[in-house]
Amino acid sequence: MELSYIYILKCSDGTFYTGVTSDLEQRVQEHQGGKHGDSYTAQRLPVELVYFCSFTDINLAIEFEKKIKKWSRAKKLALIESRYDDLPALAKKVFKK
């Protein structure tokens, strides 16, 4: 059974990059080495791995990655900091009156 990983990198400019891979260590090294020179992370080195989780089904990993990419910075920080109880509240839209 091959594992897949969702990961979040913190870039040097403070932004986050979310990805999915089957080889986490190699993928982080590729990001850190600027393997793809025109990529988001290559322009924001160095990067730091701040979160990852594993999946036994690549389709579930891809689905979760797509969800995280749409999250606000505050919600991503809650996930990174293991503040899971905060996640539902951060999903609610606040409307200005």
Rank of each mutant, 00 (worst) to 15 (best):
L3E: 10
K10N: 05
K10T: 06
C11D: 04
S12A: 15
T15D: 05
F16K: 05
Y17A: 07
G19K: 03
G19M: 01
G19T: 00
V20C: 05
V20Q: 04
V20N: 00
T21R: 00
S22L: 08
S22C: 08
S22D: 12
E25G: 12
V28I: 15
V28R: 00
E30S: 11
G33R: 13
G33N: 15
G33D: 10
G34P: 03
K35P: 07
K35G: 07
K35F: 13
G37V: 11
D38A: 11
S39L: 12
T41E: 11
A42G: 06
R44F: 01
L45W: 11
L45V: 11
V47E: 04
L49S: 01
V50K: 06
V50G: 03
V50T: 08
F52V: 02
F52D: 09
F52Y: 15
F52T: 10
C53R: 15
C53A: 12
S54K: 15
S54I: 09
T56N: 14
T56H: 13
T56P: 05
D57K: 07
D57F: 08
I58C: 10
I58M: 11
N59S: 15
N59L: 14
L60H: 14
F64H: 09
F64K: 12
E65H: 08
K67T: 11
K69C: 07
K69M: 11
K70A: 09
K70H: 09
K70L: 12
R73F: 13
A74N: 13
A74D: 15
K75D: 05
K75Y: 07
L77N: 04
L77R: 04
L77I: 14
I80R: 02
I80Q: 03
S82C: 07
S82P: 03
R83T: 01
Y84G: 02
Y84E: 02
D85I: 11
D86T: 02
L87P: 03
L90E: 00
A91K: 12
V94D: 04
K97G: 04
K97I: 03
